[in-house]
Computed example of a mutant assay.
Amino acid sequence: MKFNGLVLSRSTGDVKVLVSAFAELGIEYRISFSVSETMEILAQGHHSALVVDFDVPQALQLASMTRAMTVKHRPILFGMISAATPIAELFESGGNFALYKPLDMLQVLHSFRAGYAFMQQDRRGASRRKGETIAYLEIHSGIVPALVEDLTEQGLSVQAAEPLVPMRGLSLRFILPGTAQVVHATGDFVWTDKAGRAGLFFTNVPAACRRDLQAWLKKREGRRKHTDTHPGFEVRVGRRAMVAAH
């Protein structure tokens, strides 16, 4: 499936980061500077991803309109938000992933790859690989356990017993499967849903924990023999995360 993106933003700096990410992942894109222009482009043809700067006037209305589109034509919505925009507002308006301003290249790449996996998974109807460990998330109401469904060096996706309230600067810890090594990290939610699933992007991992995580991932990847490929991507079987092809 061809993956293409449409961007609504007037920030030159943020657009440069997005363009670099699109180039690295081999994604075609278009840039729009107004809500009306974006709506016209969406009406003309399907786009896999829509990146909306929520600081642009009427961005919320655009997000609501996108949510009303049929599933077949609805793009994955990435919302660019600043500190002044509550992350819950993004998800309530129909956003799927959060991109925090000023944009960080690693977080943008992580979110785009997760979004592509999300799209591929919906198309194939594939089931997710069950988690092998529990993450303990420190939120305002206390410590919440959640099943880890996917783990990469940049972040993880989890399944909790109830919907998680999106927030930034979340502290968490988990044991690397098959080991006694505990990884501590701080992260931001980049997506959540009403079923209790969520994705977090690591914003800080202590050096020792990062070394343990890298070693565990390297060992695990060495045991993987089957892969599914897509132009510009290598899709790791049973995982939602994508890595750019070399």
Rank of each mutant, 00 (worst) to 15 (best):
M1N: 12
M1Q: 13
F3I: 03
N4S: 11
L6T: 01
R10H: 06
S11W: 12
G13V: 05
K16F: 12
K16S: 11
L18M: 05
F22K: 02
E24V: 10
G26A: 08
S34W: 15
V35W: 06
S36P: 09
I41K: 13
I41C: 02
G45T: 10
S48C: 02
A49E: 01
V51Q: 04
V56Y: 05
Q58W: 14
Q58F: 14
T66K: 05
A68H: 08
A68P: 06
V71C: 14
V71R: 15
H73L: 06
R74C: 15
R74P: 15
G79A: 13
M80V: 10
A84L: 11
T85D: 04
I87G: 00
E89N: 14
G94P: 09
G95W: 08
P102R: 11
D104F: 13
L106C: 09
V108W: 02
S111M: 07
Y116A: 00
D122M: 11
E132F: 12
L137K: 03
I139S: 08
I143G: 03
I143S: 07
V144Q: 10
P145D: 07
D150M: 06
L151F: 09
Q154P: 00
G155W: 00
G155Q: 01
A160G: 03
A160K: 00
P163T: 08
L164Q: 08
L164G: 05
V165D: 14
V165Q: 14
P166G: 04
M167K: 13
L172G: 01
F174N: 02
F174C: 02
F174E: 00
I175T: 05
P177F: 09
H184T: 09
H184L: 09
H184F: 11
W191T: 07
W191A: 04
A195S: 12
A195V: 09
R197V: 06
A198S: 05
F201I: 02
F202L: 03
F202M: 02
P206Q: 07
A207K: 15
C209K: 05
R210G: 03
L217A: 08
K218V: 02
K219T: 01
K219V: 01
R223F: 09
R224T: 04
K225L: 10
K225S: 11
H226L: 03
T227W: 13
D228N: 09
D228P: 00
H230M: 08
P231A: 07
P231S: 04
A241Y: 14
V243C: 06
A244T: 07
H246L: 13
